[in-house]
Amino acid sequence: MPSRTKIAISGVIGTLSLIGAAAVATAAVSVLVARKVLVPPSRREEDVVIRSVDLDAGLVVLDATADSRLPGEYSFWFSRESGHARFGEIVASTPTTVTRRILGVDSGDLAAARRGRLTGWFYLTPSDLGVPFDDVAIATPLGDAPAWLIPAADSSSTRWAIHVHGRAVRRPETLRAVPVFREAGFTSLVVSYRNDNEAPRSDDFRYALGDREWLDVDAAMHYAVSNGATQIVLVGWSMGGATVLQALTRSAVGDRVSGVVLESPVVDWIAALDFQVRLRRLPVFVRSFVIVLFKSRWGRIFTGLAEPLDIDRLDFVTRAKELDRPVLILHSDDDGFVPSTASRALAIARPDIVSYEAFEVAGHTKLWNYDRVRWEGAIRDWVAKLPDGTAQREGRQRA
């Protein structure tokens, strides 16, 4: 064989080897990304360093990070989630540190802690709100899931709000919305759902991105109706936004829903995955392969999903015409986790029913913390314009 031919063949083999290696590497990265999205985390990263704590003065000095520099009031988890404190305003800052007020320490020894993480959570139980509440159980398809029932001040009210938390957090996340709904005359049902470390686990112990979690919200909707609710507002945070949109469009009692509030929501998982892939500077086709893993039966070998996910059904930008209830979206353009682009696209597609409240700086699910007055005011004004639930149902039936 001529030497040039040998060289050419060797070059082709080498190129194919490189392509094969790249394909294998891409597939491996895609599997890691898919599992990162689907597998409930066992522990959250404590990414904020504590420089010093002065409990007498009520001050804490933290390393300067994007989170620690945010204005507002926040929760601070430390000692592997066993400690919890609440931090308030920034009183001083340097290029490397931030000094904040300590509003209270609920558990743990903050003075001995060295690291922690800031979150949008602020209240841990309804007792922190100073309102009466009951612990109730919602009979979901997987078993009883704990929930908090916070009655309206007017015991005759039949308006309910069902609050649904996001991915990798628990129901206290949503307590920030309860006061404004109670003020508006709503009973609040603050729910848990499968795989959130409170509600029962699914057999595969995987998030379904709203494609199956909605069944637990549906159970909460039936609970509300059986206890007198004639009008329901669904309130979804982050992945909870995707979940309540599924419940709205798939529940047998969806006609009882008079409106939906979405806080930093996922309204299109493909857009969210695109953002995460770009954020991590991964090849663009990683997202495509991740979606194939979600949608394919053979993908369960790598993802652990019990059954494929219907990603297309989770895209409410494409499905915008199917929505027929008022929607309020609150989203920050620098969300950092779930891009606001899909939320904006939905608002543009359905200006007749979607009200959009755009924030900046606030980040993901921290809008209330950043500007409580504006956040509550947006919900208060939107709720005041909601039509009567009975009239809505009759109108849809006539249509």
Rank of each mutant, 00 (worst) to 15 (best):
L305N: 11
D312T: 06
V49D: 11
L330A: 03
I270H: 02
R398Y: 06
E173V: 08
A177N: 15
H364R: 05
A362V: 06
I9Y: 07
G104V: 12
V191P: 13
D255H: 04
W298Y: 07
I19S: 08
R344G: 13
R344N: 06
G143E: 12
G259V: 13
Y370L: 06
N195I: 09
D144F: 08
R171V: 03
Y74H: 06
I311L: 08
A8W: 14
P40V: 08
F289H: 12
V260G: 13
Y193G: 01
Y193P: 04
K6E: 10
V131F: 03
Y356V: 02
D63M: 06
T65Y: 09
A306P: 06
T65P: 01
A66F: 05
D109Q: 11
E46V: 05
L70W: 01
V91Q: 07
Q392V: 15
L18D: 00
Q246P: 04
K295I: 08
K385S: 14
R194E: 13
G304F: 07
S192I: 02
S42M: 14
D203R: 15
I102S: 02
S82E: 06
D324L: 11
V267E: 11
I291L: 11
G116H: 06
K385N: 13
S155L: 03
F133D: 10
G104C: 01
G88W: 08
E183I: 05
W368P: 06
H165W: 03
A25S: 15
I19E: 05
V48W: 00
A147K: 12
A92V: 02
L175Q: 03
D106A: 10
R101E: 14
S75C: 09
P179K: 15
I102Y: 02
Q397A: 15
A161D: 01
A384Y: 12
D67A: 07
T96N: 05
D134S: 04
N197V: 07
R278A: 14
D381E: 15
V31P: 01
S288L: 04
S93L: 05
Y356W: 10
V253T: 15
T318E: 08
V48F: 01
V131P: 05
L234D: 12
V33Q: 04
G108P: 07
R182K: 03
D196A: 04
A92R: 01
Y193L: 03
G236F: 01
V217K: 12
I19L: 15
R300W: 00
V266A: 05
K36N: 13
V136I: 15
T303G: 14
W77M: 07
T230D: 15
A137F: 01
